[in-house]
Design a protein around this nucleic acid. Sequence first.
DNA 1: CCTGCCGGGTT
DNA 2: AACCCGGCAGG
Length: 374
Amino acid sequence: MMPQVPPPEHGAQAMAYRPVSRNIDVPKRKSDAVEMDEMMAAMVLTSLSCSPVVQSPPGAEANFSASRVVSGDPWKESGDVSDSGSSTTSGHWSGSSGISTPSPPHPQASPKYLGDAFGSPQTDHGFETDPDPFLLDEPAPRKRKNSVKVMYKCLWPNCGKVLRSIVGIKRHVKALHLGDTVDSDQFKREEDFYYTEVQMKEESAVAAAVPSAPGTPTVEPAPTPRVTSPSLATLPLPLSKAQTSGPEHSGLESPLPSGALSKSAPGSFWHIQADHAYQIPVSPHIYTSISWAAAPAAASPLSPVRSRSLSFSEPQPPPAAKSHLIVTSPPRAQGSARKARGEAKKCRKVYGIEHRDQWCTACRWKKACQRFLD
DNA sequence: CCTGCCGGGTT
DNA sequence: AACCCGGCAGG
Ligand SMILES: [Zn+2]
């Protein structure tokens, strides 16, 4: 009837949206985005082809990032959210494929190489026995006792490496992810934050994250965000065009300082770790599901408008003081109460309404945000 | 006011 | 399916 006719940009709302071109052409977001994607893809491809590392990385990192980029936009909720097929409403506007199988989000966490990292029947000699990460990565798919073995798993966004010694994992993290050289660890022991202790059982790979900090209980609230790893795969962060294009544009009033924090995958991790430090009950799963969530927040410019607090520290008010004396009615049998609207800055607030194309799909559709869950 | 999002609409 | 928006709840 009239709803979808290029809405003559009614009132304030429309004005708030696309500040550009409110005169000519109306439905232009789409083409714009596509253009961007293509550009980005091209750019990344070019740089990739020029990069020294083409197909050597032991892990799947390079592959991963590449495919991600090529496929289009990194955070289009394609399936990454791996929404929990339970709790809260189950309707799900999107559903991201009817797959309700809670399969492990980790693409490479397959139980194939959990057994062991090397096929030597010999028991470990005195010290740390770690397969060199650069030589064998996911071999030795078979053989393992039915005993629970403690291992250490790399928590990096897309590295599911599991080693059996603590030093090994540290070394792995340092070398591969932090890109640290032996002498540059002057900063601090960040490696401690990137691995977790897991207990391997039998053949199935069941990881159990330990609440307390593994190894060293160092409590670093905020690891210094700095650009690390010179050549390691860095997630393709689709910075807002305003930021990437730079001064090319003129109209928009986007100062976009973005001074301290900026790009590189690790950036996304700082948050996670920060949270992690304060609120531990986390299973490796949430990492995968949250990694994307935090990334944009850190890398994207907060909307200049609105003098609200633009601090990027999760409120995380009360982690639920579960004890006795609960008066609320536990049995929620009766009419469900609208889900109590979550209290976490959602895409709208984070990116601002003028960067709507950066919101998660759910937010754009005015559905429950899937990027910044509660 | 503003923000999150359910329900329901159109393509 | 994907996409969008009215309108409501709740701060
Ligand atoms: Zn969202």
